[in-house]
Amino acid sequence: MKKLIRVTVNDMEYEVAVKPNQTLVDMLRYDLGLTGTKNGCGEGDCGACTVILDGTPVSSCLVLAVQADGRAITTIEGVEGKDGLHPLQKAFIEKGAVQCGFCTPGMVLSAKSLLDENPGPSEEEIREGISGNLCRCTGYLQIIDAVKSVSK
């Protein structure tokens, strides 16, 4: 039986009827149409489905949609502000941190969470902060470079 949940996504309130066994990533993608959150493995290994849940980056394939009831989520679609792209997004573009782009949304969200908590991370902390996000294209170095370039 579906359950009605109330969830804030990118500052918008939604009421969604979800099945108990539905994952958060599926709800975001297929119910809300927020397809920037990607599904790469379904098992919490790749980080492509990273969203920020109540301030913490998590793999949304490991969270049940019902568990998002009453909580706030930021997806990649909510990273761009009123003044345009987030500095991280700009840096990803400029530094060549994007190739196939499938890991990019999750990567940006992990990096954003890191910088929100620690605006001046060391390179090791940056690597640690994106260690849950797999990228098969870039070898990470241009991504690390991009994050570094917007660190304080």
């Binding site: 919490g44 980080g47 913490t56 998590v58 793999s59 992990s110 902060g129 260690s131 849950g132």
Partner: peptide
């Protein structure tokens, strides 16, 4: 334990 994403859950 795992990655930072896993540790958050």
């Amino acid at each position: 334990l795992g990655s930072c994403l896993v540790r958050n859950l």
